[in-house]
């Protein structure tokens, strides 16, 4: 059973591999967009932190670049963090 960062790395790689056929520019953009749209903020924060700590150990090239391209979470001020 995979936990934490290992699982997120696997998931990010799966997404990047699905888009890899589109070529680097599109694959990275679409992987980043996919993660932005479907991953809950704490998952995105966790993989961003993982990349900062380890340099992205285990992440495919496109997945690593996609994580670098993630935008920060949006916050609804009426709800707070």
């Amino acid at each position: 059973m995979l936990h934490g960062a290992d699982r997120l790395v696997l998931m990010a790689n799966q997404i990047a591999r699905a888009y890899a056929v589109e070529g680097e520019e599109r694959a990275v953009r679409q992987t980043a967009s996919h993660i932005q749209k479907f991953w809950e903020p704490r998952m995105r924060d966790a993989i961003t932190a993982f990349v900062k700590e380890t340099g992205g150990k285990g992440l495919d090239e496109y997945a690593l670049k996609a994580v670098g391209a993630l935008k920060p979470s949006r916050i609804n001020p009426a709800l707070g963090a």
Binding site: G4, K37, E40, P41, R42, M43, I75, L79
Partner: peptide, 22 residues
């Protein structure tokens, strides 16, 4: 009511997050 603009956890993600304590 105000709504969150970020996606939530999917079922397997909820279970992961539970194991991690959040």
């Amino acid at each position: 009511r105000p709504l969150d603009p970020e996606p939530g956890l999917r079922i397997p993600n909820m279970l992961d997050a539970a194991v991690e304590g959040t």
